Computed example of a mutant assay.
Amino acid sequence: MPKKERKRLQVVISDEQDALLTRTAYELSSPERLISKSEVVRLAIEKIAKELGEGAQLEDYRAILEADTIHDEG
């Protein structure tokens, strides 16, 4: 069976965001299966898209992103 073609995306994240990503991957992992940080990112993308499709408040996400932008610039 051919391998799924995947796109690569490189993003810059803060040390705090990397720590959150690492902690989340660790918490989702089990003795039978380790979860990678990439898998956590893919899960987050799917979860956000699903929530937006179900009518989640765009303003909530925009506020989070705006807070990150202000934090990054500060």
Rank of each mutant, 00 (worst) to 15 (best):
M1L: 12
M1F: 06
P2K: 12
P2D: 13
K4L: 13
K4V: 11
E5L: 15
E5S: 11
R6N: 09
R6G: 02
K7S: 06
K7T: 08
L9M: 11
L9P: 02
L9T: 06
Q10H: 03
V11P: 07
V12L: 09
V12W: 09
S14G: 01
S14W: 00
D15C: 03
D15L: 08
D15T: 09
Q17G: 10
Q17F: 05
Q17T: 11
Q17I: 04
D18S: 09
D18N: 13
L20K: 12
L20P: 06
L20R: 08
L21C: 07
T22W: 11
T22C: 08
R23G: 03
R23C: 03
T24F: 03
Y26K: 13
L28K: 14
S29C: 01
S29G: 00
S29I: 00
S29L: 01
S29A: 00
S29W: 00
S30L: 00
P31I: 05
E32T: 08
L34D: 10
L34K: 11
I35Y: 00
K37Y: 00
K37E: 01
K37I: 00
S38R: 01
S38Q: 06
E39T: 01
V40H: 03
V40S: 01
V40D: 02
V40N: 02
V41W: 02
V41Q: 05
R42W: 06
L43V: 02
L43Y: 06
A44G: 00
A44F: 00
I45W: 03
I45D: 02
E46A: 07
I48K: 08
I48Y: 07
A49R: 11
K50D: 14
K50A: 12
K50Y: 15
K50E: 15
L52Y: 06
L52S: 06
L52K: 11
G53E: 11
G53N: 11
G53R: 12
G53H: 07
G53W: 02
E54H: 07
E54C: 08
G55I: 04
G55L: 03
A56L: 04
L58V: 13
L58K: 04
E59K: 13
E59N: 14
D60H: 03
R62G: 04
A63Y: 11
I64R: 10
I64V: 09
L65G: 15
L65P: 10
L65I: 14
E66D: 14
E66N: 12
A67E: 15
A67V: 05
A67L: 13
D68E: 15
D68H: 14
T69G: 11
I70C: 01
I70P: 00
H71F: 15
H71E: 15
E73C: 04
G74N: 12
G74L: 09
